Every structure is written in structure tokens, then in C-alpha cells.
Simulated assay, not measured.
Amino acid sequence: MSEWLSREEALERLKVRPQTLYAYVSRGRIGMRPDRADPRRSQYRADDVAALATRRARGRSPSAIAESAIAWGEPSIATAISTVWHGRLVYRGRDAVALCEHATLEETAAVLWARPEPVSFEAQASSQLGRAPAFAQLATLAGQGRPSLGRSAASLCADAARAIGVLASAIGASPGSDPVHRRLARGWSVDDGGAEAIRRALVLLADHELNASTFAARVAASTGASPAACLLAGLATLSGPRHGGASEAVMQLADDAARHGADATIRRWLGHDRPLPGFGHPLYPEGDPRATALLAAIDDTDETLRSLETAAMAATGASANIDFALAVLTRSLGLPRDAPFHLFALGRSVGWAAHVVEQIVSGSIIRPRGRYEGLLP
């Protein structure tokens, strides 16, 4: 949970006047709430205060600002697509959790791509299914694709929709024009209730600011690469264990818990100084709302994972995140073991495409400088 500071504590840490503190609050840079012990007084979010204090202490030199933007730091690229605002995920001004209550991935794409109508992700059946065929088929499209420069947003979105359809088919979606969550449910032999949970997961995964895979897709787009090539860059980055591979680690954690018990498993992982996958998130100190929304749609929660969540909360105080929720979805519905990665890739491809178009329209190339620390001639 977030720590909250009194006004005096916030002023002391920031070394500013009260007027400046109130200005930070009004601009949304510091979260504020009534003091639960005395509603006449206010409290200020410690994480926001600490971030501002660090920036003030670091100064505003170009190198310091650039370095601070690399890891959970200051925003480095202007975007109108999504943000995390005081613990809420926002898609173009709309709360993603509220959107997932009713929207399909196709409707969510229309929101993120700023298109007037839902898009379609149709594709032919794939002869081979799985992660490797997904990479291979997307790579084939990338090799055949037209460069993005000078093209209209509508043309870029059409290419992206075709690539996403191919990706959906490669991970198991059946052919047809139905919403992709229903086609995926048919391919995975899941009932209507399971299809609704898959729909919700895809919407919640559609975008998440400038995460690593999205940044990779934008870098590719800034060079004028085809939409399929940009999506391939995002998919390659997503495959890393620190990104889209996190749910696979949760599945391993669940296997250990099934054999040894949840408490013993948590102690073993923490005792070996291994980060606990599936719990906590730097952008959601009070809990990942995506996980809460997805878990609420799963009726038959796996008992092993339920006990694992309780043990993890008791040991670390960290709430379940979206990676844990995807593992619960997979085990509860009996989905293929790599379903978390496939759902992540399919949902997030919609966000990659939105960022690709935005980057192309901006007309700029992403080319940071390195801070050389080696020998000179």
C-alpha cells in the first residue's frame, strides 16, 4: 500500500512553500486524500513526493533528464493513447477497467486507434499453432510489408489489422468474422463464460503506456518500418521473461505450490532471493486494477493459486498483478500453458499498432545518445 504524508512532512521533503505543494496537487503530479484520522486535514502520496524530490535534487541537465526517463522515470515521449493516472489505466480518456465490462478487442482498437468504427481481425486458419508459428507468420508479413512513411493513418491501421488477424490465427483463433475473443474461445474449446473472461483480459492488456515492447514498436515505427515489422519488434521484446514471460514464472510458482504448499513455496522463492512473479507493480502501489477486474470475471478460481495469493500477501504485502490473473485464467479454464503469453501478445498488439501510427504521424525518429564511459584514443 502507498504511504501517505502530512502536509508538514511533504513540505519538508520537497523543501517548497505550501503554494507550490498545492500547485503540484492541482496539476495531478501529487496525489492527495483527506486524512482518515482528521478529514479537515489532507495527506499526500509519498511516492509522488519522492519522485518530485528526486527530480529537483537531480537538476534539469539534458543528460540527467534523459537518464531519468529510461526506467520508470519521467515521461519521455508525448502520447495521447494511454496512461496510468493515480492507479487507474486510461485509454484515450476512458477508464480501461470500465471499458472491459462491455467492449470487445475490436471496439477497444477503435478507441485506441481513434477510428470511427470497430475494426476486424479476420484471417485464414493457421496450419501451425503456437509461439514459434506466430513469430514466423508475422515475420513473413514484415518481410513483404510496405514502409510506413508517407501513408495515411487509415492505410496503416488496415495493415496492422491484417497482421493482428494473422497473429490471432497463429495462437489458436478459429477462422471467421466473429469478435476475436469468441474465435479464440472456440479454438481453445472454452464455453461462453470463459469467452467473456478472455474478452475482458484482451481489453485490459490492449495498452499500458510506454512499456518495453511498446517502446520497441515505436522505435521501429520511427524508422519507417512496415506495421507488421513494428509489431514483430514488439512481439520479440514481449518474449523476454521480464515482460510477457512473467506469467510463465507464475505458472512455475503454482507448480511448486501444488507440490510443496503455498507457504513453503513463497519462503523458498524469497529465501533464494528470487523476485516473486505475479505480485506488485511499480505503477500500482495500491494494487493492479487490471488484475482485480479480471479475477472478478473468473468463477472457478484455482485453489492452489488462491492459497498462493494469500501466502504472498502475508509475506510481502504485495497484491496480485495482471500476470497472476492471467495464470489464474489459464488454470481455471484449462487453457494451453502458454495462453498467458498468447493473450498478452494479442491484446497488446492493438496498443502497439496505435503507437506505431502515432509515431509515424509525428514524423520524428527515436535515436537517443549513449553516455560513453569507455576509453578514448
Rank of each mutant, 00 (worst) to 15 (best):
T108K: 09
I322D: 10
P179S: 11
T83H: 00
E286I: 13
L184T: 00
S2M: 09
H102T: 14
C230F: 14
L5N: 08
L21G: 04
H86L: 08
V97N: 03
S42Q: 07
E248G: 14
D323W: 02
V357Y: 04
V356S: 00
P147L: 03
A50N: 13
V361G: 03
F135I: 04
R259N: 12
G28L: 00
D95A: 08
P62I: 06
R131W: 12
A345C: 09
S63H: 13
R94A: 05
V49P: 06
R182E: 02
L52I: 14
M1I: 08
G172S: 05
D263P: 12
S2Q: 09
G31Q: 02
T265Y: 10
A98R: 09
I198F: 06
A312P: 01
H102G: 07
E107H: 10
E248F: 14
P34I: 12
A314I: 05
Q124L: 15
R183V: 05
T214M: 13
G280H: 15
Y24Q: 14
A258V: 04
R186V: 00
A173Y: 07
A212M: 07
S6Y: 00
S42H: 11
P147Q: 03
L276V: 14
P275G: 06
R337F: 00
I81S: 00
T214K: 11
A114Q: 13
A173H: 06
H86A: 06
M313T: 08
D255T: 10
A291I: 10
R200M: 08
D338Y: 02
I164Q: 01
Q252Y: 12
H342M: 13
A153V: 01
S307R: 12
R259K: 14
E106K: 04
R94D: 02
A220N: 01
T310F: 01
G374N: 09
R13P: 00
V97S: 04
L52C: 08
A258L: 05
E373W: 15
L204M: 02
P175G: 07
G193L: 13
